[in-house]
């Protein structure tokens, strides 16, 4: 194509670019104001740890004790949060970008979600202070045995009766968990999870990771059709339209092998990265760039032109 071909030398029509822009802006502004007035926008209140611990104390305690004994989602996540050998999704074979970049947002789950927050009431409550000291000075194997006993009792039910029957098997964990639950219900844990020694706070990583380790948040999302397996990335709470433009990304999660793969995120992100690159490069991809020639939508668009000049 020569430079000359860039310049259209054929017949022209009258056109007013400024008028077009002004009319478009006025029309779109009016339409948006109208849609906003008619349909409003969703704003479902955020979940608090206080709400979670009141609505489902067993789930809260199960999550808390899993943070303590290192079996929680975050504790076993691997990079970028925790050092776990071999953890982190693979794109293909043993190739993992998560492992390549390593632990950039380090989280110590037991410290971040349980022991750290409990240090606050321990300052005024000697019973908590004692329990905390006993736990912290015990060998790791004993810590694990106590927390596993507690997790087992939670799973089987009648926790209090089981603890009374064999108090020694649980060590200080019942006191710690009881205090953490009280803290959570009072709302104090919500504050403790986001507080820093720098006063100001804009980072909710710890609080959100803790919420996500429980199943309460997920159960709320499920009723709103927001799970990944429910095409959730496209969806919005209530009956509002969501991010419909994520349809292709969402689609992959629904079909095999991705719907059952433990590396689905890494694989789908790799696929979407390739497809996005292809989308950007459409003008250079043989075959794809010729589709418009074979799908005669253009004949309709320029029908007037072809009739008069073609």
């Amino acid at each position: 194509m020569t430079v000359a071909a860039l310049e259209w030398t054929g017949p022209k029509r009258r056109y007013d670019i400024v008028k077009e822009a002004v009319i478009a802006l006025a029309a779109v502004t009016a339409l948006t104001l109208l849609l906003a007035a008619i349909f409003s926008s969703p704003d479902v209140k955020p979940v608090t740890v206080a709400q979670w611990s009141a609505a489902d104390p067993t789930d809260f305690l199960t999550t808390a004790v899993s943070e303590l004994d290192g079996t929680s989602g975050v504790a076993t996540y691997g990079p970028p949060y925790t050092h776990v050998a071999g953890a982190g999704q693979n794109i293909v074979g043993g190739i993992s970008l998560a492992r390549l970049f390593g632990v950039q947002i380090p989280i110590d789950p037991a410290r971040a979600f349980v022991l750290g927050p409990l240090a606050i009431p321990a300052q005024t409550n000697p019973r908590v202070a004692r329990a905390l000291a006993v736990y912290e000075h015990a060998p790791a194997s004993e810590q694990r045995s106590w927390s596993q006993a507690f997790a087992g009792a939670l799973a089987k039910g009648h926790v209090i009766a089981r603890i009374r029957a064999h108090p020694a098997a649980f060590g200080p964990v019942p006191v710690l968990m009881g205090e953490l639950l009280a803290m959570a219900r009072s709302g104090a844990l919500d504050g403790a999870l986001v507080s820093t020694d720098r006063f100001y706070q804009t980072n909710f990583t710890k609080a959100l990771l803790f919420l996500a380790d429980g199943s309460y948040l997920e159960s709320l999302a499920q009723t709103e059709h927001l799970l990944g397996s429910q095409w959730g990335m496209m969806n919005e709470t209530g009956n509002y339209p969501g991010q419909a433009w994520l349809w292709l990304y969402t689609f992959w999660y629904q079909v095999p092998p991705f719907s059952t793969s433990s590396n689905a995120d890494a694989q789908i992100w790799a696929i979407m990265a390739l497809l996005s690159l292809a989308f950007v490069c459409v003008p250079f991809i043989p075959g794809v760039r010729s589709i418009p020639r074979y799908v005669p939508v253009y004949r309709l668009i320029w029908r007037d032109f072809y009739r008069r000049y073609g």
Partner: peptide, 15 residues
């Protein structure tokens, strides 16, 4: 929420 669901296909009415 209102949804249309058929096998692995699921879409919100709004979308």
């Amino acid at each position: 929420p209102r949804y249309i669901h058929s096998g692995w296909f699921l879409i919100s009415t709004a979308n």
